[in-house]
């Protein structure tokens, strides 16, 4: 089960710079650990994370094995119109996740 939390301001003025935060529950297995039988636990990290604001890509991150488990990212963007910010990500095992949050723009 892929789980994420997104935080955006409850409302923003048009043209205002807002902070967007996301935290995703993921083990971010770096590929350097061994299980109880001595076998390598294969690397499995979220390698790509994309944020789209009303369909337009506004943020993209390529993550690697140096990122801790349950990655937390934040960035700033300009609020232009009410709508959705949608995050989607994929890990090395090919598992995809997505989560969206509504942005309300006033004025």
């Amino acid at each position: 089960m892929s789980l994420a939390r997104i935080q955006v301001p409850p409302s923003a003025k048009r043209g205002e710079v807002i902070e967007v935060r996301i935290a995703i529950q993921h083990a971010m297995e770096a590929g350097f650990r061994y299980d109880n039988n001595g076998r390598t636990i294969p690397k499995n990290v979220i390698n790509t994370l994309v944020a789209r604001y009303n369909g337009t890509e506004v943020f993209r991150a390529e993550l690697g094995s140096g990122i801790s488990a349950n990655p937390y990212l934040q960035f700033f963007m300009t609020a232009e119109a009410s709508g959705d910010i949608e995050f989607s990500w994929v890990d090395d095992a090919g598992e995809r996740g997505s989560e969206r949050a509504a942005i309300v723009v006033v004025g």
């Binding site: 789980l3 939390r5 935060r21 935290a23 529950q25 488990a69 349950n70």
Partner: peptide, 10 residues
């Protein structure tokens, strides 16, 4: 929000 334990709470 930054508290990773909140993922479990959620």
């Amino acid at each position: 929000f930054a508290n990773p334990g909140m993922l479990w709470v959620t």
